[in-house]
């Protein structure tokens, strides 16, 4: 009988107020979510499954828009639903962390002529996203093979090397700028920079901290600062030199990561609060108004639900 009853439920809402005949202590309840989005919808479902299960309710029937659960402790469920925001935020956080194994850090990189850190929220997630970020920077033409005008007294290949180095400094300057709202971060940066580049002039450090390194600077100044930086590096061929500098920049960025995340990370709780609007469950009360048809703010035509094609009335 119970199996027939469960199989005959057409929508999650049909579960409301029901119980299992085989054990009258076991009640049914449900959650449902708006199904307009993609991965965020599946994250919401996962968060809600975890929330219900932690309250002792077991998922038993699954629909695209929600899940029916069986259990008996309504008080514990009600208490747990107060933590809905935390559950969603936690699920988002672990999804993004997990996801950061697959190239999220690359998405943070912008071209040297525009915002060089296009999506800072994807840079500071983990050690791995920092590595991906710098590897993606390293592959940019502006680093590996920059266009250079003819510059007097130096060869084209030397000019390419120096401009490549300078452009790397632009990326580092932006990283430091984003973490620098904290005075602690500035001190930490100074220490690590001196540790990673013991023979580089203190002037280079000061140029970075005062944000004097940028793409709009005249070419002579770029070359001058790059030479200053180059003098403090062990002499190597261009490819190796750039690789080595990038490795050191990765370590520097990783030590600044907590500061970057504080100011530029993803606000998981804010996202969770927005997503909560997509969730409904039997005891979740919102003010609703019933209309003959939903017309407020609509200029012309009959507004139909994009999912079920019925006239919207709530």
């Amino acid at each position: 009988d119970d199996a027939d009853m469960l199989a005959s439920l057409k929508r999650v809402e049909d579960a409301e107020g029901r119980y299992l005949k085989s054990d009258r202590n076991l009640k049914l309840t449900y959650h449902s979510v708006g199904v307009v989005r993609g991965i965020l919808t599946s994250i919401l479902h996962k968060a809600l499954h975890r929330l219900y299960e932690d309250a002792g309710w077991h998922p038993i029937v699954f629909f695209a828009e929600g899940t029916i659960y069986v259990g008996n402790d309504e008080r514990r469920l009600e208490e747990n639903l107060n933590n809905l925001e935390e559950y969603i935020a936690q699920e988002l956080r672990s999804f993004v962390q997990e996801r950061s194994k697959y190239g999220v850090g690359e998405k943070a990189v912008g071209p040297i002529t525009q915002r060089v850190i296009r999506s800072p929220e994807y840079l500071y997630i983990s050690e791995n996203t920092v590595i991906e970020f710098w590897d993606a920077v390293r592959r940019q033409n502006s680093i590996a093979n920059p266009n250079v005008d003819r510059i007097s007294h130096i060869s084209e290949s030397e000019a390419k090397e120096l401009i490549g180095l300078y452009n790397l400094l632009i990326y580092l300057t932006e990283v430091v700028k984003q973490c620098n709202k904290d005075k602690d971060a500035e001190e930490i940066f100074k220490c690590i920079f001196r540790r990673e580049f013991p023979n580089v002039s203190e002037d280079v450090l000061n140029y970075i901290l005062s944000s004097k390194i940028a793409n709009i600077k005249p070419i002579e100044e770029k070359i001058r600062i790059a030479k200053l930086f180059r003098e403090g590096l062990e002499t190597r061929v261009r490819e190796e030199l750039l690789d080595d500098v990038v490795e050191r920049f990765k370590r520097i960025t990783n030590e600044l990561r907590e500061f970057g995340e504080k100011y530029h990370g993803i606000d998981y709780n804010a996202k969770a609060r927005e997503l909560m609007n997509d969730v409904s469950y039997p005891r979740f009360r919102v003010d609703t108004e019933m209309w003959d048809a939903y017309i407020h703010g609509k200029k012309k035509g009959t507004p139909l639900c994009v999912l079920c094609s019925n006239r919207a009335t709530t």
Partner: peptide, 11 residues
Amino acid sequence: ICSLCEFESKL
């Protein structure tokens, strides 16, 4: 584009 849809598109 709403902030959730933007977030979704980046994910």
